[in-house]
Simulated assay, not measured.
Amino acid sequence: MKHLFLALTSVLFLHIAYANDAAPLADDPVTEQRLITISEEMRCLVCQNESLAGSRSDLANDLRREIRTLIKEGKSDEQIRSFMVDRYGDFVLYRPPVKPITWLLWIGPFVILVIGIAFLFSYLRRRNTLASTKTLSPEDNQKIDALLNTLGKNDRNDSNV
């Protein structure tokens, strides 16, 4: 058992000794920083709720590679953004510009919220008007009083035991 433990720990230490540091994604750290800054402002088209910088999908890797190529070609950040918007539409941006074609993206959630609140109030009002308030007859009141008196007597008898 000791020999097995020694063999496993030596293999583990050898593996750790040969482990390499992660290779940088770009040769130039400035290029990599620009890539991260630009890709954090863009949405992954596959994940849709994750930034391009944080996504690990194949499409996100391809788009980051494309952005890295554009940076190396000397394109400005704005030129890269406009290239991505021309190719994939305003949806690729986390903060698309407010224009008639993107009004639904900007106003849609608020419209859905207002419709939901209006539906809720309408439902609650309708439910309250449909709920009937029934008044009890004198006979029903007498029956209830009799039942309560009977229950009260039973409770007193139980507490005496």
Results as ranks from 00 to 15, higher is better:
I67H: 00
F83K: 03
V114R: 11
N149W: 01
L35E: 13
P109F: 01
L6R: 11
E32R: 07
L45Q: 09
F121T: 15
T9P: 03
S57A: 06
L12E: 14
F119Y: 08
L4R: 08
A118L: 12
K153F: 02
E40M: 03
M1R: 10
F5W: 03
G74A: 07
T150P: 01
S122G: 13
A131D: 10
V30E: 15
N61I: 15
R126W: 01
P109T: 08
I112K: 12
H3V: 13
D58P: 13
R81I: 10
S132L: 07
W103D: 07
T31K: 03
W106V: 10
T135F: 03
R126V: 05
I38P: 13
A19T: 15
L6I: 08
D27G: 08
V11L: 15
S57T: 15
N154M: 05
G89Y: 00
P100M: 00
E41G: 13
P29K: 02
V98P: 00
A7H: 11
V85P: 04
N160I: 01
L148Y: 06
A60F: 10
V111W: 03
V114T: 13
A7F: 13
Y88A: 00
I16L: 13
P138S: 01
S159H: 09
A23G: 02
A23M: 07
Y88K: 03
L70D: 13
W106C: 04
P29R: 06
H3P: 04
K72A: 10
L124Q: 15
A146Y: 09
R126Q: 08
L105I: 15
V30K: 15
Q48I: 10
D62L: 14
L136Q: 11
L14Y: 12
D86L: 05
S122D: 08
D62V: 15
I117K: 14
D145W: 01
I144T: 12
L59P: 13
I80N: 02
H15K: 05
Q79V: 02
S137G: 11
T69I: 12
M42D: 04
S57Q: 07
Y94S: 03
W103F: 12
K72N: 07
T31R: 06
